[in-house]
């Protein structure tokens, strides 16, 4: 039983990591209508940026800020240089999925000669263990949970109370209408790529910090976990992604305790399949997987 209580603690950390990543991914999709399969590779690139800074003597907290900045700029440029021109050309959703997968492949293989195959880890003292019953988490893990909670509240505030957030929601609902109503959709979309790119980069660093070590191959596993959480919650729905992250994070950690940690992604995939069979639109979606790709 204690094993499961301990796993619950890890689940809290996992869901925090996944939430940061999945909210970024789902907002990218919801507002720009772009399923960015390079998301996992941008995450891992950012994790490596933090890694090299860390090796150069900077703290991992500085690395997080740098990773977020890197992710923001990288994602912004990716959209400006590649995705946006293809979209303007009238490339179909399916075409964009293929383009983003090709990009993902390219990032991973441009990175590979630089970082090598072997797993690396941050030089970071995770701080003392803080115990609460059978739950034992490090200071760093508590900080990760804290960062996630603050970010989720910030996203909520952004979407609910700011002009930018309202413009984002309007653009997501109907870009043409939004433009006709005087919303500068181009600037909104730029802002979306910067914000979600920052979430993506930060999530990469946090995910790398949460695992003992990471390697180039983690880009794909990050992507799958993020996809599972986003689709479970209803793709394009930030709050759905949060719920999806909570469920995926908790279920994968509990299953790791009950079964084997090797199969975390498999469990995430199992959930994904169940959702796709039983409720393809996801838990929260108004317009989700069922809607015709326009």
């Amino acid at each position: 039983m204690d094993l499961f209580v301990a796993a619950f603690g890890f689940g809290l950390v996992s869901m925090s990591v996944i939430a940061i990543a999945a909210v970024g991914f789902t907002m990218q999709f919801g507002i720009t209508n772009m399923i960015n399969l390079a998301y996992g590779e941008v995450m891992i690139s950012s994790a490596y940026v933090a890694y090299y800074l860390n090796r150069a003597g900077f703290t991992i907290w500085f690395g997080m800020v740098a990773g977020a900045l890197f992710g923001a700029v990288f994602s912004f440029l990716l959209n400006r240089i590649l995705y946006a021109p293809f979209l303007r050309k009238g490339t179909s959703h399916l075409g964009m999925v293929i383009v983003s997968l090709a990009v993902s492949l390219m990032i991973a293989n441009l990175l590979l000669p630089i970082v090598g195959y072997f797993p690396v880890s941050y030089q970071e003292d995770p701080g003392r263990l803080i115990r609460w019953g059978s739950i034992a988490l490090t200071r760093d893990q508590f900080i990760i949970i804290g960062i996630a909670v603050v970010l989720m509240l910030a996203i909520h505030a952004l979407l609910t109370y700011t002009r930018l957030g309202k413009a984002m929601r309007a653009t997501a609902a109907n870009p043409t209408l939004a433009r006709n109503c005087g919303i500068p959709t181009q600037r909104v979309i730029d802002a979306v790529w910067l914000i979600t790119g920052a979430l993506c980069g930060l999530a990469g660093v946090v995910a790398a910090l949460d695992s003992d070590s990471f390697a180039i191959a983690n880009g794909a596993t990050f992507l799958i976990t993020v996809l599972a959480a986003a689709v479970l919650g209803g793709a394009g729905q930030p709050y759905g992604a949060m719920i999806g992250a909570v469920l995926i994070g908790m279920i994968t950690e509990l299953s790791a305790a009950a079964w084997s940690p090797q199969y975390k992604e498999v469990v995430a995939f199992g959930i994904l399949v169940l959702v796709m069979v039983l409720r393809p639109q996801g838990l929260l979606a108004k317009r989700g997987a069922l809607a015709a790709a326009g």
Binding site: I35, L37, H93, L94, M96, V97, I98, L101, A220, T221, I224, L227, A228, V231, A235, E265, V266, F269, L272, V273, M276, P280, A289, L290, A291, A292, A293
Partner: peptide
């Protein structure tokens, strides 16, 4: 059966990795 075409693509990608 039910999924929109871009979802089909990502579902199949995930299947391949898993």
């Amino acid at each position: 059966r039910k999924l929109r075409s871009d979802y089909q693509a990502i579902a199949l990608l995930v299947l391949s990795v898993i």
